[in-house]
Structures are given as C-alpha cells and as structure tokens.
Design a binder for these strands. Sequence first.
DNA 1: CAATTGTTTTTTATAATTTAATACTATGAT
DNA 2: ATCATAGTATTAAATTATAAAAAACAATTG
Lengths: 300, 300
Amino acid sequence: MARSDIRYRNAYNRLLDYCETLSVGAAIPAETMLSEIADVSRTVVRRCLSRMEERGLISWKGREKCLLREPDDADRLEIAEPGAPSDDLEQRFLDWILRFDVPADTPLSVADLSRTFGVPQHEIKEFLAGLSRFGLVARRQKGGWMLRGFTMDFAVELSDFRSVLEINAVNQAAEAPVGHPVWARLSELRRLHIALRQSIETDYHEFSKLDEAFHAAINSVVKNRFVEEFQKVISLIFHYHYMWDKTDEKTRNAAAIDEHLAIIDALERRDAAAACDAASRHLRTSKTTLLSSLRHHELA
Amino acid sequence: MARSDIRYRNAYNRLLDYCETLSVGAAIPAETMLSEIADVSRTVVRRCLSRMEERGLISWKGREKCLLREPDDADRLEIAEPGAPSDDLEQRFLDWILRFDVPADTPLSVADLSRTFGVPQHEIKEFLAGLSRFGLVARRQKGGWMLRGFTMDFAVELSDFRSVLEINAVNQAAEAPVGHPVWARLSELRRLHIALRQSIETDYHEFSKLDEAFHAAINSVVKNRFVEEFQKVISLIFHYHYMWDKTDEKTRNAAAIDEHLAIIDALERRDAAAACDAASRHLRTSKTTLLSSLRHHELA
DNA sequence: CAATTGTTTTTTATAATTTAATACTATGAT
DNA sequence: ATCATAGTATTAAATTATAAAAAACAATTG
C-alpha cells in the first residue's frame, strides 16, 4: 500500500453523520457541498458516494442523489485507532531525551525513533530536520542523525540566548500600556507567589508550575513568531531540568520567589532598568541551577 | 532502483587512486583501513574489492590482497554528475522566493520545487520542515505546504528579532578583550568604510558586501549556536531585499556608512552604551528600509 | 450560463526496495 | 591465547514506486 485511506474512512463516517440529519427520501446536496462538509476533496466524496450506493444507502444517478434508508452502525467504516498523536512529538521527544538522559553525540536512528514513538519514519525525519535548526541535532556525515545534546556548551548557550530574549521581554513589558492584560496577570501572579511563600515549607514543589506561568506571562508581551518558537523549546528544557534537580529545592524555590517578586515590583513601578537588573539576576541564578543540575547528572 | 550507489562508485574510484600509489605486486591493506581511506563502511569496501577482483586488478583470498596491475582510466566508474548541489538549497530557495516575488499564502508544491531545484522530494520536505521553525512556511491542513511569506508582519518581527540579537552582540563586542580578532577586523572595516565613503558617488553599490561583512563581524563575537542559525536566515533576507530596493540607494548607503562608523567608534572607545545607541539607530534605519522595500514591491 | 458532474492530471503520503552501515561471529597469524 | 582481520547477518537509511487524495479541466444539465 502507498498511502493510508484514513482520510476516506473519516470522510465516509462524517458523511453518514450528515445523512442522519436528513430524512429518508431526501435529496443529497452537491458533491462540492459534501466535500466542504467532510473537509476533503471531491475525489474522496465520490469514493464515499460509490460505496454508499453499493451498500444501498443511497440512489445515485448524475446529480440525483437520494437517501434510501437511515445509516446504522454496521455501515460505518472502522478507523484504525490513531495511536500516534504525532502532533506533540516534540514534547515526547524532548521528554525522552531528558528522562532517559540520552548523552550528547548519541546517534539517533530514525527507524528506532519511529518505533518508539509510533510515528512514520518520514515524520521523524522532518521533525529532526526541524530540530536541527535549533542546533539540538545534526546530520551525520554517513547519513542519519546525531543528538548534539545537553552538553555544558549547549546549556550555556541556551541560557544565554534565553537571557537575551527575556531581558528584551522585560523591557517591553515595562513599556506596556496600562490596559495591557499583562498587568492583571502579574498582579495575580504576585498574589500566588506571596501565597506560596507563606506555605513554602510544605508546598515548595508547587513552584515549578508557577515559574513556568511567570515566564510565560513576561514573554507573552512580545508578539514575535521567532521568539515564540524558541520559547517553547526553552521552557521545556529548563523545566525538565528543574524537575530533576532536587538538591536544595526548597531553598532554591524560596529564593526564586523573591527574585520573581522583585521583577514584578520593578515592573509595576514601570522602572525598566530595575526590572532588567532583577531579571538578569534571576536569569543568572537559573543558569547556575541548570548547569549544576547537569553536573550532578553527569556524576550520577 | 531504491537508493543510488554513488557512494560505492566514489569509493571505488578513490580506492583506485589509492592503488595507484602502490606498486604492482604490493599487498593491499586491511578492509578496515581501506574503509577509512574511502570513508565508507566495510560493506562498500568489499563490494569494491569484489569488482576489482573480477576485473583482474587484484587477487583476493581471505586476507591476502595483492595488486596485479596498474589501474587505468577504463577501470574507473562513471559518476552521474552531481547536478543538484542540495547543500545551498536554502540560499537558492530564498533567492527564488524573493526574485520571483512569490506572494504570501502561496501553496508550495513539493513536486514542483523538487523539479525546479533538481533535488529529491524528500529533501525538499525536510527542508520545508526546517523552515517552518522560522515561521516562513507552514503545513497546510489538506497536506502540502504554504508559504507564509514576506508579509509586513513577518518583516517587522524579523527586524525586531534581529535588533534584539544584534544589540546583544554589540554589547558583547564592547566587552571583548584587547586581543580578540574582532578588533583587528573592525579596524580593517573602518578603513574600508572610509575608503568607500570617498568614492561613494560611483561605487555606492559596493556597500552591500561591506554591510554584510560588518554585521557578520559584530555577530562573530557571539558564540551561540542559536544565534548563528538565525543569523544565516536574517542576513540572507535583509540582503536580498536591499539588493532590490534601488530607491535612494546612494543616499541610503552613504548614511549607513556613517552609522556603521559611529558604531565602530563607540566600540573602540569601549563605550557600550554609545555603541548600543548607535546600533539601535542603525537597526531602526534598516527596518524602515526593509519595510519600504516591501511597500514598493507590493505596489509594483 | 451557472452549477454541477464526469474525467484526467498532478501531487502527496507512505510502503517497498536497494544500498550502505553496523553488529556479530569466525578465523588465522603472532 | 589474543588480537587483528575477514566473513556473515542484521538493521538502517536513502530513494523509488505507488495508492490515495487533490486539483485542474472538460462535459453536461437544469
């Protein structure tokens, strides 16, 4: 076989759904209309109609199409269960790398990845081609791919890049007009930070989510497709690393809460310089944490 | 046929080259060694040896391999001429978009691109997948790809992103130690800028190259894989646009020369603040130029 | 003649296939 | 015996081939 016919199968079932809204004997609309209903090309629609006619569901002669009987469950085509939600492949892939601690310079086998993730090989290849733009993987000379991986170099460069983007975001946030949604969000976040600081002894692991929300809020001010694309990867990576490194987690998180609050304070005063200062202090801490988490991991 | 055997053909010829350095009757080294010489797997080496034996070039029994005669031109395998230099596909693709002024939201046919660029379809697909990370193209709902293109939005966001990266680069350049190669390069560039300013009346079109060199020099200070990856695309896009927009080219270039010199001056004084200021002025000009070039184009 | 259907062409997604790489096993020289 | 090397088997990657879908085109009918 060459190409799967899930498209056809889905369309067929969707058209059955549509037929159920009609009464028996009613005329069925034009092929173009049906193709819009099922969101497929006319080619697929006609294939569906052929089958419907064969099964005695409809009569079909030229432009006279007529529903002969109510479709039932036996009429429906089986859909091979999706299985591979290949849309969040990115998340799953990074997860895999980080969780199994795949070392740098590991050769990545497309065939292997295809099996582990249940995604066709060509999708894996396209995905890797995309990641190579982030310098995360690279083509090998003799074919195939290689994980450039989470080396120290990588972490340093990623952190630096993140800082550049985030300092910029902070600057822009400071300039945001009064009505901008970021202010409401920040005030909400301030409340949450203060609440967590109160219960830090027991709830310190809750900080992870708050951290992500905080940085997302700051970056939301920047409307830039390049920044957004990167932010996705950056936040994933930082996040997973934080989740592992359990050393001094409580102390670290308590300190980070204060750092976040300092940034919020400065921003609310519209003091861009102070906000940048606070942000860059916080980002330095983050970098250190990321690096030390890598170091611990290497020793393990 | 499934996969081309250029690898084998190249290896075979390279091994003949190697054999020519041996004298007739000499022993031929181990397969592993040969595989290193030809930079292919042993599998290919053995295929080559088989052919060599068949053609009476060598005797081969177990680990006894011996050169029987000098290889001549008739022994060589023909290499289907490369034709498709698929490495600079990126350059050629952007060139194509910009030169033919492919409008935004144009559906891109992989089959078509494959023909025009003489590159296999799967490579085109991987390439597009990569570009989609830059938001330049996107997958279409019914399969295939679409050019998101050089809309105003895109240009603005690209310019902004460029500014963020470049201001950062300028900052880092100001901190570069005395021995750093950037200083020699900048002083050379200062000379070239001044020279061009003298002959601007006639040579103003020479500025394009100088501009690229200048920005490359500044950015060379930043050792960051993410920045580097982006810089490639950014410089390509800005470049092509400048090459088109011929309105006021002389005036624009003369002004840009002064802006560049201002940046160099400030950097050589190690005055980071002044350098950033000068750079951000220059980047604003650049952005304006890019946008106006787009506007002109749209009217055309 | 506008809307629709019938037919053909082109394109895309995916499997099939050949080449190449790698892993594993066996053998012979020191 | 041990190490380098060769022989063999397994697995993966690159590329072709092809069914499925889309799109373009031509014909038809109300």
